[in-house]
Computed example of a mutant assay.
Amino acid sequence: MTSPLRLVIFDVDGTLVDSQADILAAMGFAFEQAGHPLPARETVLGIVGLSLEVAVARLAPELAPDQHLRMVGWYKDAYVELRRKSGAAQSSPLYDGAREVLETLNAIPDVLLGVATGKSRRGLDKLLDAHDLRRFFVTQQVSDHHPSKPHPSMILTALSETGVEARDAVMVGDTGFDMQMAQAAGVAGVGVSWGYHGIEALGEARYVIDSFTQLPAILETMWETAA
């Protein structure tokens, strides 16, 4: 009996790469341009994972929608400039063990890898190219084409593109939005403790890991249990 096809979907910011410095700086620029006080660091990082339009509106609900749109533009401009100055690989470094685990999982014949991120297509492309990660991910879901997390659209589309059943898929992420999205799509969630939301926000996760090196064994345990 052959094993079913599996799909492991990764969040990006706070899961695969640490981009908090650029996120905070770009958001600071957007709020400065708007003449509005920037919320506390933990508040800004608390919206990572949401689509940018939703994130800005949540951080500054008292501002008008047209101002939110301008802030989104200012944020994008600042983020692009920061990335131009230092390069995406340096400004958004991979977390320890990320590449090695991607290599390990990618070498398993019946395992496919994907991405579901609040980044734009342009932003994800720059990051994947900077780290030479594009070859790993057979499905890539970005904010341009989906409602913001935790809506399940990204995961449901990834399942449709790969032909994998929900019971054979796993979402790996650092935010409550990732785990809620996984639950809404009917797939298991694995939370990571090194990201931006903290363990207390990962209540819907089936497992929470403290290092990338733990992920292959956790996945094996989940798949053996489901068999």
Rank of each mutant, 00 (worst) to 15 (best):
L50E: 03
Y79V: 06
S153L: 00
G163N: 05
V164E: 02
T225P: 03
R99N: 08
L215V: 14
M179P: 03
E103Y: 01
A34Q: 14
W74V: 02
S211Q: 08
P216C: 05
A60S: 12
I218C: 11
R206S: 07
P93W: 01
D11L: 09
A64L: 08
H146Y: 14
E161R: 02
H151P: 04
R122V: 15
L102K: 00
G87I: 15
M71C: 03
L133Q: 01
L202N: 00
G28L: 05
L112E: 05
T225D: 10
G28I: 06
A88S: 09
T175M: 06
E100T: 09
P4F: 06
P152N: 08
F31R: 01
E81N: 09
R99A: 04
L82C: 09
L105E: 04
G163R: 10
V17T: 15
L94A: 08
G14P: 11
E81G: 06
S19N: 13
H151A: 11
K126L: 15
R41F: 05
V17L: 07
H146I: 05
L112K: 05
M27P: 13
L52N: 04
S3W: 13
G49C: 10
T117A: 00
L16S: 07
G49N: 06
G114W: 01
S143G: 02
G195Q: 03
Q140N: 11
T175C: 00
G123E: 15
A185K: 00
I47T: 12
L45V: 10
R122N: 15
T175P: 02
V48Y: 03
A21H: 15
L112R: 01
R6M: 08
L102Q: 06
Q90D: 09
V187F: 06
G198Q: 08
H146A: 05
D174A: 04
A226E: 10
A60G: 06
L219V: 12
L69I: 05
H131W: 02
S160M: 08
Q33A: 11
G73V: 14
V48A: 00
K85E: 13
T221G: 13
S143I: 13
S143E: 02
P109L: 04
F31S: 04
D96L: 10
D96G: 04
A21F: 15
D110M: 07
I9E: 02
L127D: 01
S143V: 14
W74S: 05
M181I: 12
E42L: 03
Q90G: 04
A116M: 02
M71P: 05
A217S: 12
V54R: 11
D96E: 15
I23P: 01
L133F: 14
T175S: 14
V190Y: 03
I209P: 12
T15W: 07
P37Y: 06
A116R: 04
V72Y: 11
V138N: 01
V138Q: 08
V190F: 04
I218A: 13
L202T: 00
D18V: 07
D66Q: 13
R206C: 04
A34M: 14
S120Q: 10
V44D: 01
G186W: 03
H197P: 05
S92M: 15
G173Q: 01
E81W: 11
A21M: 13
L113E: 03
I209G: 08
V56G: 00
A227K: 06
